[in-house]
Structures are given as C-alpha cells and as structure tokens.
C-alpha cells in the first residue's frame, strides 16, 4: 500500500497540472458560457431557463489527461524501476480519488449555481434537471460515475498506444465504431427502439450515471492491467 501511495505521489508530483488543468478548463468554459448567454439572452424573453451541456468539457479533458498518464507517465515510471502492476494500481487510485474530488466540486458548483440564481442568468450548467438527486451522496456519485468511466477509458486507450502504437489505437477505435454501428443496426432491424427508450426512461439516474459507468470502468481497469503486462516503456 505504501508503495502504491508513493507511485501515486509521483503521478501527482505536478498535481497543480494534473488535477488543476481540467478545473481551469471548467472555469474557462463557465466564464465563456456566462458571456455567451449574457449576449444572446438580452433581447430574448426571459421565459424558459437556458441550459448548457458545457459540463461535458471537463469530462473530456479528464479522458485526455489519462491517455497521457499512460503515454507519458507510464514510460517515466517504468524508467524509475516501478512495476507495471504498481503503476496501474496507483493510476486507478489517482483516478478514483480524482473522480470523487471532481464529483464534490461539481456538486458545490451546482449549489453555487442555485444560490446565484443560475449565475444571475438563470443558466443551468451544473444543476442539470436530468441529473438531480434528492440526496447529497447519490448526487455526488452521479457526477462521479462518468469521470470513472472516461478516465479508465483514457487509461486503456493510452496503454493500447504504448503496447501496439498508433495502429493499435486505430484498430481499437474502428472496432468500437463497428460495434456501435452494428448495435444500432441490430436495434433497428429487430425493431427494439421502443424497449431501448423504455430502458433509459425506466432506469434511475443513479444507476445510469453511477452504477453502470462504475461497472464498465472496472472492466476497463482490468483491460488496462492486462494490456500493460507486455507494454514496453
């Protein structure tokens, strides 16, 4: 365990960059959205509250950060005689901690958003209607789940690049694309659209945004570990 903490500290030796950059991006996106909505809202009727999907930016940045965890930090760590096992485990530790931290931060932002009347514009960027929970813990988990999913997806993509290079990443992306298209085709062909819609409508937000992502994240974590075994720095 001490070894894992040590390796995690190496990943966070530049914590300001690792943990701070996504938050900086988030702050900039928030500022940009406030400006944009101020500009477009002025002449409009203040009828229904505007909503922005800009929150997704911080999730995407986190994914990219963790691709780099594997393409840049992994070779460095192995150069310092750290085992793949220890590195992947501590990367998992960092990801889980970071996801929870960001979950809390976004929850706090949603509180501020509520208190300031949607940044004075009735703007909803954090406190999105379809994510709302009645309890603090599940609310934070709903924000955290997608971070877990995307971070581990980033780690796996990164280690696939380390292991098989650019061609490996292409194969991975094309396979995912083919899988998705195939799935859509299957649903269309079997006329399953109604059950699919029902599934999303009936599944609770907590399960959809926290439980399922966490399960997929666990699978991705296992894939990351397996791929790392023969990865060379």
């Amino acid at each position: 365990m001490t070894q894992l903490v040590k390796v995690a500290r190496i990943q966070l030796v530049n914590a300001r960059m690792v943990l701070g950059l996504p938050l900086l991006v988030l702050a900039c996106v928030l500022a940009a959205n406030i400006v944009i909505f101020m500009a477009i809202q002025a002449p409009e009727s203040p009828g229904d509250a505007p909503m922005t999907g800009a929150l997704i930016s911080v999730y995407i940045v986190t994914l990219v950060t963790h691709v780099q965890t594997m393409t840049q930090m992994f070779p460095f760590a192995l150069g310092l005689s750290i085992t793949r096992r220890d590195f992947v485990a501590s990367a998992g530790l960092v990801v889980v901690g970071q996801a929870l931290l960001y979950g809390v931060i976004i929850w706090v932002m949603s509180l501020i958003e509520g208190a300031t009347g949607g940044w004075g514009l009735d703007l909803a960027m954090f406190d999105l209607a379809f994510l709302q929970q009645s309890n603090v813990v599940t609310q934070i988990l709903v924000y955290t789940g997608p971070f877990l999913l995307l971070s581990f997806a980033g780690l796996w993509t990164g280690i696939v690049y380390q292991r098989w290079g650019q061609p490996g990443v292409w194969v991975l992306m094309l396979s995912l694309g083919a899988l998705l298209v195939g799935l859509l085709a299957l649903i269309g062909w079997q006329d399953w659209w109604q059950p699919v819609f029902d599934f999303f409508a009936e599944t609770s937000t907590l399960v959809l945004f926290a439980v399922y992502p966490a399960v997929i994240a666990a699978v991705l974590a296992a894939a990351t570990y397996a791929t790392s075994r023969r990865a060379v720095p």
Binding site: K6, R9, I10, V13, N14, M17, V18, Q68, Q72, M73, P75, F76, A77, G79, L80, S81, I82
Partner: peptide
C-alpha cells in the same frame, strides 16, 4: 535497480525538478 537510458522520456508537464523529486521518492 536504477536504469538510466539516453532514450528516457519525461512527461511534458514536468519541470526538471519534478523528475528529481519523483526519483527521490522511489529510490
């Protein structure tokens, strides 16, 4: 074991001090 190689890459986000700090934690 400490293996120093010419081809060693360092993370882009590092300044020189970070590389030494990381090594100090490990060895």
């Amino acid at each position: 074991v400490c293996f120093i190689k010419e081809s060693q890459r360092y993370p882009d986000i590092f300044i020189a001090r970070h590389a030494l700090e990381a090594a100090a934690m490990v060895f």
